[in-house]
Design a protein around this nucleic acid. Structure first.
Ligand SMILES: [Mn+2]
Ligand SMILES: [Mn+2]
Ligand SMILES: [Zn+2]
Ligand SMILES: [Zn+2]
Lengths: 138, 138
DNA sequence: TCAATAAATGCACTTCCGTTGCACTACTAT
DNA sequence: ATAGTAGTGCAACGGAAGTGCATTTATTGA
């Protein structure tokens, strides 16, 4: 797991045991996770620590936060080298109405939108809702 | 205010005094409103009534709910004759990072997105964040 | 090495929003 | 007028986000 330590170090985050575990947990999941998910996975860790770990990860560009319309913040690891703030790296997210999972579609970029005069866009969030691959396949 | 009564009746909502007032309040505002906003505007009405009024309005196609990424549900009146569920009527929303207001850009439709195989889209939510017309102008 | 310092973690508590159950009131229809 | 239905008010609950402070762990440098 030296890779994880390196990734954290490279982003200016000290690789504590807890942080490595959380990173590993998120890397193994292919879907976006909520704080509660992590809480359930690490029952003996305190919620505040997990909460602040996610905050730190987000500030340092290790994860990005996702608003999937459930009013529960989800988080997912950033692609290595991605700049989530830049328009070019803004990808869309898909929320399944059946299994309630949210997934990054990193290949699908958010198209550029022309706004009326006076509006200045700094960020964008595009979420499609429907039936995911897994649920439609069965 | 016979127009409001008619609009409510046409959508199968009985036009009570409270409902007419809420509709009027939302019509006068050009921005999306949260339940708390309405609560503050009608101090003597109960929160539950306002909550259920919004629910009813939403079910009957009078308002649509907006997830602007603040984790607070916003609501705005639907255009007369609009079908918010249909892809063609899905418009984008703009959230101002400065004044914290959210506005419907009903002219700006959400572009069609091609999804990977297996994904079936039923709904979409596109929110742009930045500086609104009002805030960039001054 | 050891003390001083800084960073990370844990615990307790708060606030805010959304939601529900139940009782009461106002309206509608027979 | 009466019964039935729809609307409203009151109280309480639960989940999630966030904060202050004490404690533990890691880092630094004398
Ligand atoms: Mn993503
Ligand atoms: Mn709208
Ligand atoms: Zn699914
Ligand atoms: Zn603004």
């Amino acid at each position: 797991m030296k890779e994880i330590e390196k990734r954290l170090n490279d982003n200016g985050v000290r690789p504590t045991a807890m942080r490595i575990l959380i990173y590993k947990y998120m890397a193994e999941k292919e879907i976006a996770v909520a704080l509660t998910d992590i809480e359930n996975a690490f029952a003996k860790a305190d919620r505040t620590t997990l909460y602040r770990t996610l905050k730190t990860f987000e500030e340092k560009g290790i994860v990005h936060q996702i608003d999937d319309g459930t009013h529960i913040s989800k988080f997912a690891l950033c692609e290595p080298g991605c700049n989530c703030e830049l328009e070019q790296d803004l990808h869309l997210h898909f929320h399944c109405n059946n299994c309630d999972e949210t997934i990054c579609l990193t290949e699908q970029k958010i198209p550029h939108i022309n706004l009326p005069d006076g509006y200045v866009a700094e960020d964008a969030n595009l979420v499609l809702k429907g039936i995911c691959e897994k649920c439609s396949g069965q």
